[in-house]
């Protein structure tokens, strides 16, 4: 076989192969078991140990690109939180296009199924500019920081939940951040969680997951979910398999495909190098 030819293959064939490899398990699922990692278990425990009626502040700091990885985490969190009768207050700082509507869609659909009311059990405060300044204000005065309105521009004083939740310092028990960059977990840790000694957990896109491990080790993050895999594990833990779990088989085949590409690419490289040295 002329391995050298492998070096000159049209890249578009690779793209077609990627689509095929990811599609096959969607049509014919492999049903491979998902093991739960320590980091995901810690996230689950952080929510689980909250007493009923606690308030979780969720910051959905995702952009359109990484939303497929992070959105399923919200559904799983909402299920676990609402089952424990915890309340959810949502904000967004990363992207106004994605954060508030996606929070509304994913938390809203779980809330509807579980009979939880908007404004009573959960609320969407929307996107705000200038993350640092807004976060710092939220520590003492959430109403003021949010300019007194929710994401639909309705006065916060109209909602019973906001009569209980006035500041992060006194009324929030856990901060859950989905993160893809800045602003994200680092800002929440630096400006809110660390000064107020509040527990911080959440989930990150796998693009930055390896870069935040040291904070889990030092206990500054109470575990963290890693991308779609983390979402799938969390869904499994809360007993609500959703978009995270359904993507895992495709992910498996995708990874095998990349490893095969790495092997074939290197065989081609060494074959052509050998040919050159012989010539």
């Amino acid at each position: 076989m002329d391995w050298d030819k492998l070096q000159r293959i049209d890249v578009r064939w690779i793209y077609v192969l990627v689509i095929v490899c990811l599609l096959v398990p969607m049509f014919w699922p492999l049903g491979l078991p998902i093991t739960i990692s320590e980091n995901t278990r810690k996230v689950w425990e952080a929510v689980d140990k909250l007493p009923p009626g606690s308030v979780i502040l969720v910051s959905h700091d995702t952009g359109p690109g990484n939303a497929p990885e992070l959105n399923p985490m919200l559904s799983a969190l909402a299920k676990q939180a609402f089952e424990k009768n915890c309340k959810i207050v949502g904000v967004a700082f990363f992207d106004q296009l994605v954060g508030p509507p996606m929070f509304q869609e994913y938390v809203g659909s779980v809330a509807e199924k579980m009979g939880k009311k908007y404004g009573v059990d959960w609320i969407n405060l929307g996107f705000r500019l200038n993350a640092t300044a807004t976060m710092r204000q939220m520590c003492d005065d959430i109403h003021g920081a949010m300019l007194g309105v929710d994401w639909q521009n309705k006065p916060l004083s109209e909602f019973p939940i906001m009569n209980e939740v006035k500041s992060i310092k006194d009324d929030v028990d856990l901060i859950f951040v989905t993160t893809v960059g800045t602003p994200g977990y680092a800002d929440w840790m630096t400006y809110v969680a660390e000064p107020l000694k509040k527990p911080l957990t959440g989930g990150a896109s796998l693009t930055m997951y390896s870069g935040l491990q040291q904070y889990i080790r030092s206990g500054q993050l109470q575990g963290f979910l890693g991308g779609l895999r983390g979402a799938a594990e969390y869904e499994k833990l809360v007993g609500a398999p959703g978009k995270g779990c359904s993507g895992m088989d495709a992910q498996s085949l995708g990874h095998m495909m990349i490893i095969t590409f790495l092997i074939l690419g290197n065989i081609g490289y060494f074959a052509s190098a050998r040919k050159k040295s012989r010539a």
Partner: peptide, 27 residues
């Protein structure tokens, strides 16, 4: 529309990382 276009453009990195694994990642 907006989120899907933006997400799809970003997702193209998935294709590029596969072709990079094949063409550039040499021992």
């Amino acid at each position: 529309i907006a989120i899907q276009i933006s997400g799809a453009i970003y997702a193209m990195l998935g294709f590029y990382i596969c072709s990079a694994a094949y063409r550039s990642f040499k021992l």
